[in-house]
């Protein structure tokens, strides 16, 4: 069974709240349209009782969030959507009774395209019941695939899998400081705490990061890593070394760290693979050396294709999957 929460006259501001209300009941929530969410009720009977009780509890939860919405429960998502759009308050449509319950509803609840709605209106078809009685083959010939889909919905045969909405994962920590920081050193403890949190969240999802964005008020630094890592100590050290090389130049009042998630590095070392530094350690070593000799004095030399004698440039020394660049 599926439940739908529909906000009539949707303003556009409360959709996130609507999504939160649905997420309070089920992890499988589909953001069908602005102001309309559908979610799976499978297995909730043990927690909340019958479907009528679940629908009442959902309606109560939505009301508590300050949203005026209709709630409907049906055996498939589109029937729940149509019922929520067509009936005010709380509606429970029993399994197998969808076509009968929805037959008097106007065709608008199916959200057809304006052209099809106009065509059906000219034919004198204004309710789902009337549309359901039309022969399917002729509907297909005259209205095409869209017409066939709407006809199936009107007949109560439009079952489809739910497309759950997955919230974009953001690994971000923000800290407002009670007093301004004028030096980098005290920031170590703050960054270490924040990165500990972020890395434990990354670890819980089997992710790592290859890019860390640090915002100290309006001062921004981006730390790009050649390999994905989730070691908070390493990230803290690299950020501090980077800040020492590029100090913010103003007291720090707010610290915001965001790690861009990526899949972790999976490496299988071989017995006969030539000696090479571990990428994470190498990154830290390079940052430390850069702090000693300057960023422009450490790297891999590359001769330039020019007539200028002895022309070369220094490239960032890094380990890649195939070799070293």
């Amino acid at each position: 069974m599926f439940a739908c929460i529909h906000v009539p006259n949707f303003s556009g501001e409360s959709h996130a709240a609507l999504s939160d209300c649905a997420s309070a009941f089920s992890p499988r929530v589909e953001n069908t349209a602005p102001g309309t969410v559908v979610f799976d009720l499978e297995g909730l009977e043990r927690l909340f009782g019958s479907y009528s009780e679940i629908a009442e509890k959902v309606a109560e939860h939505v009301r508590a969030a300050g949203i005026q919405a209709h709630v409907a429960v049906a055996s498939y998502p589109d029937a729940a959507i149509s019922a929520a759009r067509g009936f005010a308050g709380v509606t429970v449509v029993g399994r197998g009774t969808e076509a009968k319950r929805l037959q008097d509803l106007p065709l608008d609840v199916l959200a057809p395209s304006p052209e099809i709605l106009e065509t059906l209106d000219r034919w004198g078809i204004r309710t789902m019941g009337a549309f359901r009685n039309l022969p399917a083959v002729q509907v297909s010939e005259r209205l095409g695939q869209e017409g066939v889909r709407l006809h199936k919905l009107a007949r109560g045969a439009g079952s489809r899998p739910l497309v759950p909405h997955q919230e974009a994962l953001r690994f971000m920590e923000v800290m407002e400081l009670e007093y301004e920081l004028g030096t980098i050193e005290p920031l170590t403890f703050i960054l270490s705490r924040m990165l500990d949190q972020i890395c434990s969240r990354l670890r819980a999802r089997n992710l790592a990061t290859h890019e860390v964005h640090l915002a100290l008020g309006i001062y921004l630094r981006v730390l790009r890593l050649p390999v994905p890592v989730r070691n908070p100590k390493l990230l803290t050290k690299l950020l501090i070394l980077d800040l020492e090389a590029h100090p913010p130049g103003a007291p720090i009042q707010q610290v915001k760290v965001e790690a861009i998630p990526t899949k972790p590095r999976v490496a299988q070392n071989g017995l006969f693979v030539p000696l090479s530094p571990e990428p994470e350690k190498l990154e830290l070593t390079l940052a430390r050396i850069a702090a000693v000799v300057g960023e422009e004095n450490v790297g891999s030399p590359e001769t330039l294709d020019t007539h200028r004698p002895d022309a070369f440039r220094i490239r960032k020394f890094e380990v890649t999957a195939k070799g070293f660049t």
């Binding site: 070593t285 050396i289 000799v293 004095n297 450490v298 001769t303 020394f317 070293f324």
Partner: peptide, 22 residues
């Protein structure tokens, strides 16, 4: 050269510190 890390030092202290780090 792709397998060579070149550290250009200008002082003896830099060379010693860099070697230590490496």
């Amino acid at each position: 050269l792709k397998r060579l890390l070149w550290v250009r030092c200008h002082k003896l202290e830099q060379a010693l510190k860099t070697t230590d780090l490496l």
